[in-house]
Design a protein around this nucleic acid. Sequence first.
DNA 1: TTAATATCACGCAGAATGAGGGATATAGAA
DNA 2: TTCTATATCCCTCATTCTGCGTGATATTAA
Lengths: 207, 207
Amino acid sequence: MFKKKIIIIEDQEDLRYSFELIINGSDQFFVHQTYPDAEEAIKEISKTKPDIAMVDLELPGMNGIEAIRQIKEKSPKTECVIVTVYEDSNLVFEGLKAGAGGYIIKNANYLEIIRALEEISKGGAPMSSQIARMVIQNFHVNPNSPLSPRETDVLKLIAEGKSYTQISEELFISKETARSHIKNIYVKLNVNSKSEAISKARKDHLI
Amino acid sequence: MFKKKIIIIEDQEDLRYSFELIINGSDQFFVHQTYPDAEEAIKEISKTKPDIAMVDLELPGMNGIEAIRQIKEKSPKTECVIVTVYEDSNLVFEGLKAGAGGYIIKNANYLEIIRALEEISKGGAPMSSQIARMVIQNFHVNPNSPLSPRETDVLKLIAEGKSYTQISEELFISKETARSHIKNIYVKLNVNSKSEAISKARKDHLI
DNA sequence: TTAATATCACGCAGAATGAGGGATATAGAA
DNA sequence: TTCTATATCCCTCATTCTGCGTGATATTAA
């Protein structure tokens, strides 16, 4: 079994060093390179192609979110792990959206760090249950929707790019009824086109 | 501090009983009612309005996914916890999408059960890192997209319901260029309308 | 030096859109 | 009981949008 190649992007020297020590002390991982900022790491990422990149979110210059985005773009197979002090912030969530596979808090101990890396390696996603909740909340629907059930049905089809005609066919109603629902949706959401309706619906998790 | 009201929907009598014992033994939760199937529980849910509903996924009659959907519809504040034997199945994932806030595996011990309920109570989402990964994968973009970056930009706007004209305006290109990109997208995705493109894009996480 | 990307152009027939004006029936709330 | 919300259906109008066909050019990456 080969050891997994890891890079560390972290501006605090002490942390960089202690992470390196911990990881190199394990028999499953080794640190290929450490960087105090993201720019240099990203420049080399196509060559280094590490298995895992540990990325601090608070970096000088390019921030960690953008760094993760670019790493995933240039080396999609590299798993990114967020390293952060803020355990339950929106930043972590943004990082996950940008492509990170999990996160480690900065004051994690030896065991926690290695276990997080192991989980990432075998396809898991280490994260606290608070973050997990934020994540799943993202595809829960808003129970306080102003729309009626039927209007919600229609809106879903609008969001799929369906035309009036297609909506009427799929819901077994006349085209006029579909248009009527859509007009009511526009009034309720205070918009006046399909695209605006979709943006608003997504923003408010109406669908 | 009031104890949180819990209902249990579980067809296996022994499990129902042991969950009840464990929960009633805690000082934070109490079991209001247990049900061997979802139908009865849902009929009463508007009246019982429990803080937490523990829902088995494999139920006779209505399955757990549908049960969760209906519970969240009729009593949105009730937190649903999936109870399952299959730790890492797609079913759990579907349950989370339907509105569950986390899950408990059936052979969890006393401590694990109480801890999961506590996490749910304080807004967390108990789940294994494998499930967490499935969940976050859902808003990661597919790195093997056949589309070029520009085409992806265009597709995103299509998915927002934007017209050719609007797309051209937002991307500062001519309408003809937008149409050109869209035509190329259709060829690559093997579709021939915006709505088909959107479905395919969502299915394959292209956007 | 090909292939892919990104940009731009024109014409056409038919469909879709948003805005305006209506109607009817049911069910539930005030 | 009257009002409101919901869900269904109908018509017209001017404008825009769509998909298809058939091109072109410049840059860049393999």
